[in-house]
Amino acid sequence: MRVAVVNYGVGNIFSVTSALKRLGVEVEVVAKLDPKSYDAIVLPGVGNFEAGSKALSERGLRGAIIEAINAGVPVLGICLGMQLMLESSEEGEGEGLGVVKGRVVRLRVPGKLPHMGWNSLSLVRWSEFLDGLGDQEWAYFVHSYYPSPDDREVVLCETEYFIRFPSVLGFKGLYGTQFHPEKSGETGRKLLRNFIYKCVRR
């Protein structure tokens, strides 16, 4: 099992790489992506949507990721990496990958932003990605924007921070979390293990 962690220059990828290695898989951090040479792809990322969108284009990763998705390689997007699966964002200019229809919108809430800390996941729809997860398990969030997909069928979990917003997406081999599974203790371990051992068909 070979997993590519795409390094497009936004934020810390050491933690996510370490978390995957602990699952016993071969992890390669790649700046260029050969779409068909990996069993799974992880798109991490902390930071600004516009910068992320630009980095994907400049590094020629856009086409490669879409090609991998079309070839059926499972992809997990984390935080900004998940937001980049959508078409656009209120955070800034630039296009996402558009593999999930919809846009990323700002959390318009009377509370502090970024929404940072431990919050819980409400299970909305079953998926093998969520296997073994109980309702209201805790996950670690750091963000000010959230995904708003057109098709609500792709929403697997929601989280409440003054409003309810989609916190886990998933369909056809594409998965995304608004929180950081690599920083979410037991909950995160379960999700990463599910992604590697249940969502990836070998």
Binding site: F14, S15, S18, A19, K21, R22, Y140, E182, K183, S184, G185, G188, R189
Partner: peptide, 11 residues
């Protein structure tokens, strides 16, 4: 820091 990050999965 690196050694801690290798094994820790909380912030």
């Amino acid at each position: 820091v690196r050694r801690v990050a290798e094994v820790l999965d909380i912030p």
